[in-house]
């Protein structure tokens, strides 16, 4: 996944995307980025990314939407917030990564078969339904959707978790599921008002 030199043209820019990138909660300061690279230097995942965080910030604010939304970089970010603490310009890079993930899911731009967005969506589905996450069920679901072969190879770990009482399949749930549903429905109503 080594990064290669890239050349991009003005015509490839998406000005709407560049505009959006500076206007959501947490991204206000992205234009003050001076490309110092402390974010990349502090990022434990940077060696595995297709674009380092520094490069991604620059591409995003210039409006290279397609490259940014289909990058592995945004999905490799674990939200450890090291970059955010280091940034001399107080840019909330981790929060910008989150917003880019959400946009990538909305537009279906994330790399197919990649387990990380699948995990995020299955997790969300489970919480919407039950209000809680049953870890083992979630893990099984994600592996069934992405890599059944690896699931089989993990039988030994599964057995050890079972033996130590950590493999719990019983579905966890809140008591008042209706309250969760009402809460989430109301968010949708509020979102429309906020956009209007």
């Amino acid at each position: 996944m080594a990064s290669a030199p890239i050349l991009r043209w003005e015509s490839e820019r998406d000005p709407e995307f560049a505009q959006w990138v500076t206007h959501f909660a947490g991204s206000e300061r992205i234009r003050s980025c001076m490309q110092c690279g402390l974010c990349s230097a502090s990022c434990p995942l940077a060696p595995y990314m297709d674009y380092t965080p520094r490069r991604l910030m620059h591409m995003a604010r210039e409006g290279f939407k397609k490259d940014v939304l289909s990058s592995l970089t945004i999905w490799l970010c674990t939200s450890c917030y090291a970059c955010m603490v280091e940034c001399p310009r107080a840019i909330r890079a981790s929060e910008i990564m989150y917003a880019l993930k959400r946009r990538a899911i909305q537009e279906g731009a994330y790399p197919r078969g990649f387990a990380i967005p699948v995990l995020a969506q299955e997790f969300t589905r489970m919480v919407r339904r039950t209000g809680r996450v049953t870890e083992i069920r979630l893990v099984l679901r994600v592996f069934l959707r992405t890599s059944r072969w690896r699931l089989l190879r993990m039988w030994r770990l599964g057995l050890r978790l079972l033996r130590t009482g950590r493999f719990r399949l019983r579905a966890e749930s809140v008591e008042r599921r209706k309250e969760i549903a009402a809460l989430l429905d109301a968010v949708e109503a509020g979102r429309k008002e906020l956009a209007a």
Binding site: A25, T78, S79, Y98, A99, K101, R102, I105, P117, L119, A120, Q121, F123, T124, V127, R128, G131, R132, V133, V174, E175, R176, E179, I180, L183, L184, A186, V187, G190, R191, L194
Partner: peptide, 20 residues
């Protein structure tokens, strides 16, 4: 009757719902 905090995963899908 606590519920899931949303963790990093929910935040990657929907911020407003995650905060709620």
């Amino acid at each position: 009757d606590w519920n899931c905090c949303g963790a990093t995963a929910y935040m990657s899908v929907d911020q407003l719902q995650a905060f709620a």
